[in-house]
């Protein structure tokens, strides 16, 4: 159930974000951002951050977005095309963003695949692309997120903590 809700809210958040930059009219961008913020509030609820979720809805979607709507209505739509190149820098921007996406998501995946640092020899061992193709050692614990070696002292402490706090999920 939590997994289904996560995917619904996550896809909603990402599609809302894409809608912000894809809409031609700034007014629709603001509406897409409101949808994005509500999806993000659902994600915060899944992370058990109830107060942050409530503040997100009340402060962001309630107050800040109303300010945006008023300013967009005041300044007005400029009727500009989605992409009208005045220079070649737009393509460079898209290129840099693609590189950033590859780097950021790759960093998350690499951190999941890394097997952790316990000894000094591990500290000398650097992160490599080959780690992408190895299986992650621990499932459902903090080790899965940050990559602690199973059986290490960190893992034992975290395992004991996650048992009584239910860190792994719902």
């Amino acid at each position: 159930m939590a997994d289904v809700l996560f995917f619904i809210a996550g896809i909603g958040a990402i599609s809302g974000a894409i809608g912000v930059i894809a809409a031609r009219n700034p007014f629709y961008s603001v509406l897409a951002l409101v949808f994005h913020l509500l999806s993000l509030a659902a994600l915060f609820l899944l992370l058990r951050a109830q107060f942050v979720a409530a503040a997100q809805v009340v402060v962001y979607a309630g107050a800040v977005m109303v300010l945006y709507v008023f300013v967009v209505a005041y300044v007005g739509d400029q009727e500009r095309p989605l992409y009208a190149p005045t220079s070649n820098l737009g393509a460079v921007g898209v290129l840099f963003t693609g590189a950033l996406a590859v780097e950021a998501v790759g960093a998350v995946i690499l951190a999941r695949r890394r097997r952790g640092i316990d000894t000094e020899a591990d500290e000398r061992r650097t992160l490599s692309v080959g780690d992408l193709f190895r299986r992650p050692p621990g499932i459902g614990t903090r080790a899965e997120s940050v990559g602690t070696r199973p059986g290490g002292r960190e893992e034992a402490a975290v395992g004991a903590k996650s048992a009584d706090r239910d860190l792994g999920g719902w």
């Binding site: 996560f6 990402i14 974000a17 950021a104 995946i109 999920g169």
Partner: peptide, 14 residues
Amino acid sequence: MAIGWYLAVSALIF
């Protein structure tokens, strides 16, 4: 869900 999924969503939104 593991935290890595949330981080991936966060990276994509960023």
